[in-house]
Design a protein around this nucleic acid. Structure first.
Lengths: 241, 241
DNA sequence: CGGACCATTGATAATTGTCAAAATTCGTGG
DNA sequence: CCACGAATTTTGACAATTATCAATGGTCCG
C-alpha cells in the first residue's frame, strides 16, 4: 500500500484533485489551493458513501478504489447505474438545485474519497467558469453512456449486452497478457447481473456459454480472461439473426 | 393556428427563449438580444431535426410540438430515449467537446424550433455564468430521469412500466375531465413500445388488460382516458408478488 | 480444515417475442 | 357526410428467452 496510512492525511503529493478532469484546466497553484479545502475520507468494502434520498452537503471525488451507484426497488431488487472509479465524482446533481440524490453509492473495496462542500464548490465554479464547462462536458459524457445503456436494455439481446460489458470492463479494468486480456472485475456475478438487469443465474449461464465457445475463460470469481476479443466485438455489435 | 405563417418570422412576441428554463435568470433586454441571434425553423411530422452521428453546429430549443429522440441498432430496432416538448433543448452535448450526437431527433408532429449556433451559445455562457449553472441543473434533472428509466428497464416488470408511462404522460399531456384524465399521446402504440423497450403487440396486450380491468379506456389511437389513477399509481409503485 | 459466501446447474414456470391474420382507425377525396 | 384504401392496432397461436426455485459445487479466509 501507500505510506498514507494515517487516516489519509496525504497533503500535496498525489493530490486527488489532480486526477479529476473537471480541474484539468487549472494551474498548479490553484490545484493546491483546492486541495487545501478538500476533506479526505476512507471507506471499507461494503460501506455506504452516499444514501439515496439524502441531500448531500458535498461533491465527492473518488481517489482510489471502485464504488457502485445503484437504486433499489421497494421489493429489494437492485439496479446498478454506475461503477465509479478513480477520478469520477458524484453529488453534483444537488449542487445548485436542492434535490435529493437518486441513488446510493457503496464501496466495492476500500475506497478513498475527497469531498468539497457544496458551498466551496459553488465558489469555485463562480471563480472559474471553466469548471462549469468541464462539468457540462463530463455530464454530457455520462449521459451518452446512460443513453447507450438504456438502448442496450431496451433493444439489445443479452448476448450482446454481456459481450459489451466484458469489453467495457476489459478497457477499464483489463490487463493485456500474452494469452489475452485479464479483467479484474469490480463486481461479483450478482453485481454484473444487477448491472445488466437480469438474474444472477442467467449471467452464470451466459458466461458459461462463452467459456464453452472458447471466447473467455473464468479464472476466478474476480478474474475473467478474454481470449477472443474479436468474437466478443462481433457479438456486441450485432447478433446473427 | 397563429398568425405566424410566414416561415416563422415571429420576432419579439412569443419569444421561444422565454420558455426555456436555462434563460430564466436573464433580463428582458437580454432575452430580446438573444432572441435576435436565434434562427427559427419548422419541421413537418416525420422530418429529422438532428441525425445520429452528425456534429451539430447549433443548440436547438423546441418552441412548439413534440419530437422524439431515439437510437437505432444495426438491425433496425428503435429505442426512444426522450420525448422533447416545448422548452426542451438538445445539441448541448457537443457544445464544448467536439463529439458526435448519440441520437436522432424526429418531429412527431409539426415542430417549431429555435437554434443558436455553438459559437454564439458559448459566448452567452461566457458572459452569463448563470446559464452554465442552469444547464448543469437541467442536465442533472435529465440524468435523474434517465437513471430512473434505466432502473425501470432493468428491474421493474412491464405492468409497472406501462403504468408509470401512463402516469407520466398524464402529467405532461393530460387534461383533467370529469370522468378522469385524458392523455393526448405524443406517441403511437409502436412509439410507446419503442420507448418501453418491448414489442408493439405486448403494449397492445397490456393496455387491453388495463382496459378490461376498468383502469383506463382507449378513446382513440392518440387518446387514452385514465379512470383509476390510484390503481395505476399502485401498480407503478409496487406489483403484488 | 471448516464454514460462510458465492457461483453453477437443472428443472420448470412465467413472460415476452414473433409471425400471421383480422379488426379498427385515420385521412382523403368524392 | 360517407366511403374507401392505407396505415395502425389488436388478437391468436406458438416459440424463444429469461426468471425462479432448489440443489449442488467451488472458492475464499480465518
Amino acid at each position: 500500500m501507500e505510506k498514507c496510512g494515517h487516516n489519509c492525511g496525504c497533503h500535496h503529493h498525489d493530490l486527488c484533485v489532480h486526477r479529476v478532469p473537471i480541474f484539468s484546466n487549472l494551474s498548479d497553484d490553484e490545484l493546491i489551493r483546492i486541495a487545501s479545502i478538500v476533506i479526505h475520507k476512507e471507506y471499507k468494502k461494503g460501506e455506504i458513501i452516499l444514501r439515496e434520498g439524502e441531500r448531500p452537503e458535498s461533491v465527492v471525488i473518488i481517489h482510489g478504489g471502485n464504488a457502485k451507484a445503484y437504486k433499489y426497488t421497494k421489493d429489494g431488487r437492485e439496479q446498478i447505474l454506475y461503477v465509479f472509479a478513480e477520478g469520477d465524482f458524484f453529488g453534483e446533481q444537488n449542487l445548485f438545485r436542492n434535490q435529493v440524490v437518486g441513488y446510493s453509492v457503496e464501496a466495492l473495496e476500500p475506497v478513498k474519497i475527497c469531498m468539497i462542500t457544496k458551498q466551496r464548490f459553488q465558489q469555485l465554479v463562480q471563480e472559474h467558469s471553466d469548471i462549469a464547462i468541464k462539468i457540462i462536458d463530463e455530464l454530457g459524457g455520462r449521459m451518452s453512456r446512460l443513453e447507450s445503456a438504456l438502448q442496450s436494455m431496451g433493444v439489445r439481446n443479452l448476448d450482446a449486452r454481456v459481450s459489451s460489458l466484458l469489453l467495457d470492463f476489459g478497457e477499464k479494468y483489463g490487463e493485456e497478457q500474452q494469452d489475452g486480456i485479464v479483467i479484474h472485475l469490480p463486481l461479483s456475478r450478482e453485481g454484473i447481473a444487477n448491472y445488466l438487469g437480469v438474474a444472477r443465474e442467467t449471467v452464470s449461464r451466459k458466461l458459461g456459454q462463452l467459456e464453452n465457445d472458447g471466447i473467455i475463460r473464468s479464472i476466478s470469481n474476480k478474474e475473467i480472461l478474454i481470449i477472443e476479443k474479436e468474437q466478443l466485438m462481433y457479438m456486441a455489435g450485432e447478433e446473427v439473426e
